[in-house]
Design a protein around this nucleic acid. Structure first.
Lengths: 207, 207, 207, 207
DNA sequence: AATGAATGAGTTTTCATTCAT
DNA sequence: TATGAATGAAAACTCATTCAT
């Protein structure tokens, strides 16, 4: 007869999600190096031993959390899927900037928080892969826009996608360092406009 | 009970620099969280005790290394001091890009490697301050350019300086994650051109 | 990476007591400053890590041990609770003297062994508080005796209690320094008699 | 040409005294466990290396300091050497009590501060020997008093000397723990009177 | 499946002692 | 004689991982 039932028997998938959510919470609050299994267990309202029933190691827990962030990023990218490419890009950029400025949600958990484990733990490669994955999705939008004529046909999709990404990254860094002066004064927005205006079709490239 | 004299007596200043160099080396190789005093001591070829003769704590060692990076950044910014502002900015951008692509020198040790110690250690604030310090220097160049007429007078120096910084940051991130495709294909250069061309005086601001 | 299971799983309370016992043993043998966690772990036959499962710090281990000593002292004070006050005091004094002379049991672990951690650790205050606590209990006996007429009504309970305590302290010091000549030849007993005879009611206060 | 002359060449004996004084100062301030050679060197205004020119080890420094305390105790005992024995004892007791209450001078550095190094360092035995030495001197006064008739001839000098010592010890302990209530309210004085009145010659032994 | 007590290697930091200068 | 840079063993404490229950 157990004195206290901490966690009811739960479907494995649910339990896993519960743990992943806990990892994200702890990482957001304390950063990766301080995301100890003890803290994760507490946040997940589960014993430390249970974590190891669902994950072979702390590293795997972090990777699972990274994947969750990727999905969040996908969700952001897939916002307003019926709009034209440029509109979509602008929308994505705007929301990202807002999230960064507000330090809110998963987006405010900068991806490279995961870089923090050091170059040799192998999380960095995972982060890079995550970025590449999101990047490809983004470029898909651009290529689609070119095909549909909503983006100038002479635009190099790689160039535009990376330009877009440049701003996202800078926002992430600024968010991570708490540089309100960068996030708050629309500097990133300005660069974003500059980059996207290059891609706008018709007439002069400047509006 | 000292058993063995490993390192010959050295002028304190030299030894300090030796240690700082070791810190940078270890951080570059393993990242901040894995930059243990044991590793630093080994890299500096001194005992762990010796480290504490020169620094009161591991944190101070890291801060000293951060300062060295800042000085490197200053040196980069002060390159070609007699040239006109735009030329200087272009030159700084070019060298930074090269260093990042080559993963060479101190510049290739991305500043925000130091962010990796986790939000609670207080290194992040130090990094942010370092960035602000370099930023101000950069803006000084711009303001000087405006005063001398080599930069358009209607340019907002903050906007331009942050725009410039945006690219540096993105390059740093890409370098840190080993994203050769970003660094090698001139994507950052392109954004840099876009930003700087806005600031060029005479004629139409866009080519 | 746990290699070996040294200690079988035990009810937490039992393990805690086991550790406290180990602390007392080590302190008695080596003194507080040399009561290292390594020694305590060895004495308790658990790993050092296990100690920190039950106590947040070495200091807390020492305080727990101090509390155990206080309880022992309480037990001594509460001996023969139905006897009259003077008889009780005499009995307490006698047993204390015996324990000190025999260097036996917890009583032989002088309280102020805990003072030895140095003035800055803050254990001294805890020791003082422990003494005050036992002192109050002792004074309670005396006040009770006065109320019941077994102690002269003109006796100042504080004076008598501190007088009693004076002898206990001296015995402790002598025990700690191994001064057999003091403990063995009844010198403390004599002072104790002197002090208690003052408190005896009726007739002449003793010749 | 040395940049800064810390300590002029000094007669060895003077330098030794300088160091011993530093040890006492540091022990009084920080206690034995915290009396590090670094602190001692600083207090003596001498390099750490120099300490080892005059003493083979930290332990010897502490023992030398203990000896200095013994001399201080001798000086206290030899106060008013021409007075009669009881007067001398009363005087000694009074000054000791004052010093303890005021936490002043070397006397306020309780001897058993030196016990703090732990039972196995061998300082305790040295402390005990110091006490015995002072004890013998004290008993000499008493024996002298008996011979001269200023102390009752039926008094056991050992008993009286130890009784006297009992109070000194208790005062030391109280001082060490900061028990103002004991030191300030004359409790120790009272016991002292009790003990000494036993030794007063003529008439009844005191009421 | 779930637990959490137990582990021990590893972390940062301290400090008595030595010895080349 | 005097120095203080250098040492390394040992201190307190942390934490990912295991496994008997």
């Amino acid at each position: 007869m157990p004195r206290q039932v901490r966690a009811r028997r739960l479907p494995p998938e649910v339990r896993r999600e519960q743990i992943v959510a806990a990892v994200l919470k702890v990482v957001a609050e304390h950063g990766v190096p301080e995301a100890t299994v003890a803290r994760i267990a507490q946040a997940a309202n589960v014993s430390e031993g249970t974590l190891y029933v669902y994950f072979p190691s702390r590293r795997e827990m972090l990777l699972a959390a990274l994947e969750a962030i990727l999905n969040e990023m996908y969700a952001l990218i897939d916002i307003e899927p019926e709009a034209d490419a440029l509109t979509r890009l602008r929308k994505i950029g705007k929301i990202h900037a807002q999230e960064m400025a507000a330090e809110r949600g998963l987006m405010a958990l900068p991806w490279f928080e995961f870089i923090a484990a050091g170059p040799q733990v192998g999380l960095r490669e995972a982060v890079a892969e995550t970025h590449r994955s999101a990047y490809r999705r983004l470029r898909g939008i651009i290529e689609d826009g070119i095909a549909k004529g909503t983006i100038r046909s002479d635009v190099d999709p790689d160039r535009l996608a990376w330009g877009f990404y440049t701003v996202l990254w800078a926002e992430n860094i600024a968010c991570m360092m708490g540089m309100k002066e960068y996030l708050g004064d629309g500097h990133a927005d300005h660069i974003m406009d500059l980059i996207l205006s290059e891609a706008a079709p018709r007439k002069r490239p400047e509006a």
